[in-house]
């Protein structure tokens, strides 16, 4: 990771020096372990604060929306796919961007690491594909990174950037033959009462903080439907029906656009697995339209077209 970091700093410095970009969007070290923070670097000297490790799960595309300057952005596989969607949806122009692509080996799930230690965690470091955790009492533990990956990363099909101008390392091998939809099939096979119960339980702890929405680069509307007031058809409180409505419709808004970057799930303070909603729609898009989000600049997602020969078999 340290090589990645050096390379990122160098590229950022060069781009700023050569005045190719006005600003570089990357990560800096956070105040607590495993919480790197997005940051904007505008002068070459400050590029030294840019970091890279397995705690850069936040999708930086979210910070591109409607920006006017020329930006160098550090982007993992999933991030680049969101950048593609952003360009297609006029949220940023391709010419404004220098995409610094990071071939990604996966981000770690801090909840999983927290679960491994009894005491508070003081430091987490990584070497090759091993993670070493040190707690506040100085006890350490070393584990394989693959055991503590974010769940979206362990089923990721696009680790390498799909679009980039600079590359910080050689491309990594993509995983083959992964089953992305095991969980979804399980839900699909439930009887409707079971499903109802499943969703009810799943969302019972949601506090409607909208952190999931705010972390998502797809959610850039000036007024989100949940905030609509005229007419106000959706309650603003903690009514379970309203909470479910929020999640269902948000997922629908992400249909054909979500890249399963995991930012939403990562942001949730209540550890709710909201990706299950978006993944269901992702699966439908693959099966019905042969579509995966964010892979091409010259096509729009399936729900953006009107075609007379769209598949209809699901209409019963």
């Amino acid at each position: 990771m340290i090589e990645y970091q050096k390379k990122i700093q160098n590229i950022a410095e060069r781009l700023l020096n050569e005045k190719k970009v006005d600003v570089v969007l990357g990560f800096k070290k956070g105040t607590i372990p495993m919480m790197n923070q997005p940051c904007l670097v505008r002068v070459p000297d400050e590029t030294q604060k840019l970091v890279w490790d397995s705690n850069c799960g936040i999708n930086l595309t979210n910070y591109l929306t409607n920006r006017k300057e020329r930006i160098g952005i550090i982007a993992k596989g999933c991030d680049t796919r969101n950048i593609v969607t952003h360009i297609v949806e006029n949220k940023i122009k391709r010419e404004q961007l220098v995409i610094i692509g990071v071939p990604c080996t996966g981000m770690i799930d801090k909840a999983k690491i927290n679960g491994l230690m009894v005491n508070e965690i003081a430091e987490v470091s990584e070497h090759n594909q091993e993670i070493t955790i040190t707690d506040s009492r100085g006890a350490t533990k070393t584990i394989q990174k693959k055991e503590v990956l974010q769940s979206n990363c362990s089923i990721c099909k696009y680790k390498n950037p799909v679009i980039y101008d600079e590359l910080v390392a050689d491309l990594v091998p993509e995983s083959k033959d992964i089953d992305r939809y095991e969980d979804i099939r399980k839900i699909e096979s439930m009887a409707s009462s079971e499903k109802f119960k499943f969703f009810e339980d799943m969302l019972s702890t949601c506090i409607r903080c909208y952190a999931c929405r705010n972390a998502c680069p797809l959610c850039y509307c000036p007024t989100c439907f949940v905030d609509e007031s005229k007419p106000q058809w959706l309650g603003k409180g903690m009514d379970p029906i309203d909470i479910r409505t929020f999640h269902f419709l948000r997922a629908y808004h992400c249909a054909g656009r979500c890249t399963d970057c995991g930012s939403c799930e990562r942001a949730c303070p209540m550890d709710i697995t909201v990706r299950q909603f978006t993944k269901k729609l992702e699966k439908d898009c693959v099966e019905l339209f042969g579509w995966e989000a964010g892979l091409t600049l010259d096509k729009r997602p399936p729900l953006d077209h009107y075609k007379t020969n769209d598949p209809q078999s699901f209409i019963k």
Partner: peptide, 15 residues
């Protein structure tokens, strides 16, 4: 236009 996010869906989808 105040609420429009310029995403372009309407332009793409209108028959």
């Amino acid at each position: 236009p105040v609420n429009c996010s310029s995403c372009g869906i309407c332009i793409s989808i209108c028959p």
